[in-house]
Amino acid sequence: MIQLTELLSPRPEPEWRLIKQCGVNEVVGLLNGAEQDQRMFASVGAAGFGASRGGDSPWSEAAIRHDMGVFEDYGFTLVALEDTAPIDKVRLGLPGRDEQIDNVLTQVRAMGRLGIPTLCYNWMAISSWARTAIDLPGRGGALVTGFRAADLDGLEPLAQPGEITAEQLWGGLQYFLDAVVPVAEEAGVRLGMHPDDPPRPEVRNVPRIMSSPEAYRRMLSLRPSASNAITFCQGNFALMADDLPALIREFGRGDHIAFVHFRDVQGTVEDFRECFHDEGQNDMPECMRAYAEIGFSGPMRPDHVPTMFGETNDRPAYGTLGRIFALGYIRGLEQSAYGTRTRELG
């Protein structure tokens, strides 16, 4: 069976009760004030989660232990982190990267001691996921995010043309993996590289290198290890190739998938929109059967859902009602593909 999870910031909110009632016992956490906690909504012009907690560095063992306690108070076990200390100097190979890597090593060692086995990270320099619209009308008037490459011309560049190169990013990744993977192995932590979102060669003059299956094959070869693995974000991999279940089977048979974002899209990498989990262009039941075939039993969470009636769009793609819908959809597919089991009530 999978670990059905949700992404939560360690700041309790009323919807946590709903998520628990949907049968979610394990969660994926952001770090209070770390890179993705502060960047993921700012990148699409939204307010996000708010101010961070003061005190210890968010990636320190003390801070992560505190966050674990916050989740445990609501009946959740923290099984993965989807955040790191800032690492743009590492991505870009700039002075100061060793200090940033030291922060990641602090986090990885802390995760090992605290029993958190999965770390999701990405190689999107300067920004995070990119969208050119966050309020497109979807099914029944729900609001969805979308991307059109033709609309990028109206956005401010993030770098000058040629200022950052793809090989610069690859060099930074090699340096990162050489430093971090041995420590992750010792700690019993798997690193799951998230795809570029969207998986294009460049966005606003910043190259993106994790944007094709070939790039992932190259990444895995840079430092072969069970700790050098993939966050298989279906929405992005679906924009890279036509046969999503085949990619799941390819990477899964090598035990390279550490974590799954279960979602779908409509369109192409040059022009796409998010959608409800049951109306995308991919065969989602076949995707779940593929995970069952490869014996995947790690964390899986819904991702990028529509904002539904009665909700604000303060957190585009992360509305509560869409997530509740998605959790039920995923649980149904899981039981169909994996079979049922008696679940702990709580």
Rank of each mutant, 00 (worst) to 15 (best):
M1Y: 07
Q3C: 06
L4G: 06
L8A: 07
L8F: 15
S9M: 07
P10M: 08
P10V: 02
R11M: 12
E15P: 02
V24M: 11
D37Y: 14
F41C: 09
A42I: 02
V44S: 12
G48N: 08
G50T: 13
A51I: 08
S52R: 13
R53S: 15
S57N: 11
P58Q: 06
P58W: 09
P58N: 11
H66R: 15
G75T: 08
T77N: 14
A80R: 03
A85M: 03
L92G: 01
L94D: 01
D98K: 13
D98E: 15
E99H: 02
I101K: 04
T106P: 03
R109S: 14
A110D: 06
M111D: 01
G112V: 01
R113T: 06
L114I: 10
P117T: 11
C120K: 07
Y121R: 03
W123N: 06
M124K: 03
A125T: 05
S128R: 09
S128F: 15
A130Y: 06
A130L: 12
T132F: 13
I134T: 15
L136H: 11
G138C: 08
R139G: 00
G141N: 10
G141Q: 10
A142T: 13
A142R: 13
T145A: 15
G146L: 06
G146V: 08
F147D: 08
F147S: 11
D153W: 10
D153M: 12
L155P: 02
E156F: 05
P157K: 12
P157C: 12
Q160K: 15
P161T: 11
G162W: 14
A166F: 09
L169S: 05
L169F: 10
L169W: 04
G172S: 11
D178L: 10
A179Y: 08
P182N: 07
E186V: 10
S211E: 09
E214L: 10
M219R: 12
L220I: 03
L220F: 13
S225V: 08
S227Y: 01
N228C: 14
A229F: 05
I230C: 04
F237C: 00
A241K: 09
A246V: 03
L247Y: 05
R249K: 14
R249I: 08
E250S: 06
E250P: 08
R253D: 08
R253P: 00
D255C: 05
F259T: 01
V260H: 07
F262H: 13
R263A: 02
G267S: 05
T268D: 13
E270H: 15
R273M: 07
F276H: 14
H277G: 15
D278R: 05
G280S: 02
Q281Y: 03
D283G: 09
E286T: 12
C287E: 09
M288Q: 06
E293W: 00
I294T: 00
F296K: 01
S297R: 15
G298P: 05
G298M: 06
M300H: 00
D303Y: 01
T307Q: 09
M308I: 03
F309S: 14
E311Y: 04
A317G: 07
L321P: 00
L321D: 11
R331M: 06
G332D: 08
G332H: 11
G339Y: 09
T342I: 07
R343I: 10
G346D: 12
